[in-house]
Simulated assay, not measured.
Amino acid sequence: MTTPPAGLKPSRIGRLAIDASRARLATKDLVGTEEALKQAFRVTPQMAEIHPMAREVLRVPWTMHQRSRRDLLAMTKRSGLAS
């Protein structure tokens, strides 16, 4: 993801990263999807864990047999989508 505009609050940056992950998923860019989700979890971990769009976007690569990706596994566990 590109650098967000200066002065944005973390909650806005987190939402921007979640929106970017959804857009990247729509273009089938799974690596970009994961990178954008990582940024959301880095900037606003509590929001990324419970936000419905973040959880739905996270669910797609998880069900597409991307389970071997360590960072993806960590995010799904934090969101309660995996045990």
Rank of each mutant, 00 (worst) to 15 (best):
T2A: 13
P4I: 00
A6T: 10
G7P: 09
G7H: 11
G7T: 06
L8P: 10
L8H: 09
P10T: 01
I13M: 03
I13Y: 05
I13P: 12
G14N: 03
R15P: 09
L16I: 11
L16F: 07
A17Y: 03
I18N: 05
I18F: 04
D19V: 01
A20G: 04
S21V: 08
R22V: 00
R24I: 08
L25K: 11
L25I: 08
T27A: 13
T27Y: 10
K28R: 15
V31A: 13
G32H: 00
T33C: 08
T33W: 00
T33I: 06
E35R: 02
A36L: 01
L37I: 08
L37S: 00
L37P: 00
K38E: 14
Q39E: 15
Q39M: 14
A40W: 01
F41L: 09
P45E: 05
Q46W: 10
Q46H: 13
A48F: 00
A48N: 04
A48S: 04
E49M: 14
I50T: 15
H51F: 06
P52V: 06
E56R: 14
V57S: 03
V57E: 05
R59I: 00
R59F: 00
V60T: 13
P61E: 03
W62C: 00
T63W: 09
T63E: 14
T63N: 13
H65M: 15
H65P: 09
Q66H: 11
Q66C: 11
R67L: 11
R67S: 12
L72C: 06
L72G: 00
L72D: 00
A74N: 06
T76W: 05
T76H: 09
T76F: 08
K77Q: 15
R78F: 03
S79W: 09
G80A: 01
S83H: 12
